[in-house]
Design a protein around this nucleic acid. Structure first.
Lengths: 145, 145
DNA sequence: GATACTACTTTCCTATAGGATACCGGTATA
DNA sequence: TATACCGGTATCCTATAGGAAAGTAGTATC
């Protein structure tokens, strides 16, 4: 029952929020409360949370080019402190976007790697890049030089 | 010269960062400095900035359903203070995502509307929603209902 | 024994985002 | 005259993000 309702809202959302038709002008329909409409934003916010923050994208980008060790990532990203790197890597791990491998060499070696799930972020980052590039051009053309 | 270099990096980025091939494992190539690689993240960050923040998505969603007046938006979004609404609407205006129309009725009427440019955000929000939904299911399934 | 490297953690501090509350000028309504 | 609505501002406060600097445990090198 609950599950079905969710699905309906989901589909509704996909239809109304994504299409460019004349549906644009209609109100949030009465059979959906404001909170139910807003609830549909939760997944969007989740995705944004994963990517926002000062260092997350750079770390993900760094791991895109292959396995990396802690210090290696830190060296690649100027200004990144070990505290922040540690925090962000933990978040990536919790979300299963990156994995951590410890090897008992001496001194110890720790490697971080994007998981295959982490790689599913690519189309999304691609879309962000696409829209962001257009927006950059637009804003720079307007207020720049 | 500058423009051409940008384009090259852009294409490179599209190829390397977006594909799922064996290119994954290679390093950030030597002909591109780290900073040049990182520079490619600027558009992505721009896009994230547009959408992140506590209220932006809800305001955009609200305007998706048609023109709205200031108080009307505020009433639709519980907890949103006039200060924050005012600030966010200004940002949307500056970025040309929303437009502001003043009518000299009495009392004065002010309407906000998504611009057609603002509507170009939809595919992007759609992608965020898509990835975010999958991620929600994954995380909820893992860490308990 | 001193120094250095790896992979972090801890503590303290600042800057920014956002919230609570009050207020403003203008108009209408009772 | 009092109250209420509109579309906001202004002021003050708190909470969180993030930075600087030092420290830690273990191992290796000089």
């Amino acid at each position: 029952m609950k599950k079905k309702a969710d699905t309906v809202v989901y589909l509704y959302h996909n239809i109304t929020f994504m299409e460019t038709s004349e549906h644009d002008k209609r109100k949030c329909p009465s059979h959906l409360s404001t909170s139910e409409c807003t609830k549909q934003l939760l997944p969007v916010k989740d995705a944004l949370d994963i990517l926002s923050g000062k260092w997350k994208l750079q770390i993900i980008l760094s791991l895109t080019f292959g396995k990396k060790r802690f210090k290696q990532i830190q060296r690649e990203i100027p200004g990144l402190t070990p505290k922040m790197l540690s925090k962000e890597l933990k978040e990536l791990e919790v979300n299963e976007l990156a994995s951590r491998h410890v090897y008992d060499t001496s001194p110890v070696t720790v490697e971080y790697e994007l998981t295959s799930y982490g790689k599913t972020l690519r189309p999304l980052i691609g879309e962000l890049h696409k829209w962001g590039s257009k927006h950059r051009k637009r804003i720079i053309a307007k207020s720049g030089r």
